[in-house]
């Protein structure tokens, strides 16, 4: 498989993504406009001191009275030239507002993904190689519970137990505001603040990935080439880990990479529960205010993430399975 073929494939897939993303941009734009209320809803309420004239002036300033089509193309033109608009709430440019929140979310999702994959591979492989044992049943049962536990409930339970009862871990925020940590202490402090959010965010992906790893591994363990490896005298450990795992990983990698946008979505709930200043919470705050430019920005980034994850999954698939060629 030449690098040139991969590059050509990636370029073609990116080109194919353009109409897709345009379509998504139309849908999110229209859907946002259809949601009840609007940026001026608070001002339009009876008990405020904002006069209808002021509201009309604001609407005019933000172009909210233009026809929808004009609004859309104004926004799209801005997006394409790097001006994603400004927050109705703070007046900050959207990219700046989002950019300030991205690191937290990125940290949260990447840590959660890496952790999920690690746990899922260890537990899944272990359960599969001891199929129908106590360990296997326990793992299957646990992942079933994990899949069916709502994350907001799980988050509140963790808060209750570890923060309020045991007083072991901080309940909210990213840093301890009472102490000014520096250097390694600051890293530790932040890590401590991320433990519970990561646990909540990973719950679903750990559970589903474990099931994928287990079933993929069970499938591979029954393949003839593992019998060949055993018949060559290789110890079971080598057979499972060197011959089995790389093959079992192929379908799992796809699922794991596609879990990335899901985790991103999960961050909305997690960041809200734990008061983390990430993109997820920005989204919730902006949704409350109907801050269209920020909402559109986040939704568009999420859409791009889904497209990129899909592409990444396909490219990785081809790299792991030599039988796949890029066409």
């Amino acid at each position: 498989m030449g690098h040139r073929a991969v590059t050509a494939y990636v370029i073609r897939r990116c080109l194919q993504a353009i109409p897709l993303l345009l379509g998504i941009s139309v849908i999110i734009f229209v859907l946002l406009q259809m949601t009840p209320g609007g940026p001026m809803a608070a001002g339009e309420g009876a008990a405020t001191q904002v006069s209808p004239e002021q509201i009309a002036r604001l609407r005019g300033r933000y172009g909210l009275d233009d026809p929808l089509v004009v609004q859309y193309f104004n926004w799209l033109g801005g997006v394409l030239t790097g001006d994603w608009g400004s927050s109705f709430d703070t007046g900050r440019p959207v990219l700046e507002a989002i950019g300030a929140r991205v690191p937290v979310t990125l940290q949260l999702t990447v840590v959660a993904l890496v952790l999920s994959v690690l746990i899922a591979v260890v537990v899944g492989v272990f359960a599969a190689s001891r199929q129908n044992s106590l360990v296997d049943h326990a793992a299957t049962g646990a992942s079933f519970i994990g899949l069916s536990t709502p994350s907001f409930w799980f988050g509140i339970m963790l808060l209750y137990v570890f923060s309020f009862q045991l007083r072991l871990l901080p309940s909210s925020g990213l840093t301890d505001l009472r102490a000014r940590h520096t250097g390694f202490a600051a890293v530790l402090d932040q890590a401590e603040h991320l433990i519970l959010p990561v646990a909540v965010l990973s719950l679903m992906s750990v559970a589903s990935l474990t099931r994928y790893v287990r079933s993929s591994m069970i499938d591979v363990l029954g393949q003839d080439y593992l019998r060949t490896a055993r018949g060559s005298g290789l110890p079971e450990r080598t057979v499972v880990l060197r011959h089995g795992l790389p093959n079992a990983a192929i379908p799992v990698v796809t699922v794991a990479v596609l879990a990335l946008p899901e985790l991103f979505l999960g961050a909305v709930i997690t960041e809200t529960i734990f008061g983390l200043p990430g993109m997820g919470r920005l989204f919730v705050e902006s949704a409350d205010l109907r801050d269209y430019p920020v909402l559109l920005g986040i939704l568009l980034i999420a859409a791009v993430l889904v497209v990129v994850s899909n592409l990444l999954a396909d490219v990785l698939y081809g790299r792991l399975d030599p039988r796949i060629t890029y066409v």
Partner: peptide
């Protein structure tokens, strides 16, 4: 002891 299996696509590891 060693065994030669009847060939099929699945007797050798496809990813190695």
């Amino acid at each position: 002891l060693a065994m030669v299996y009847q060939d099929s696509m699945a007797v050798l590891n496809p990813t190695m």
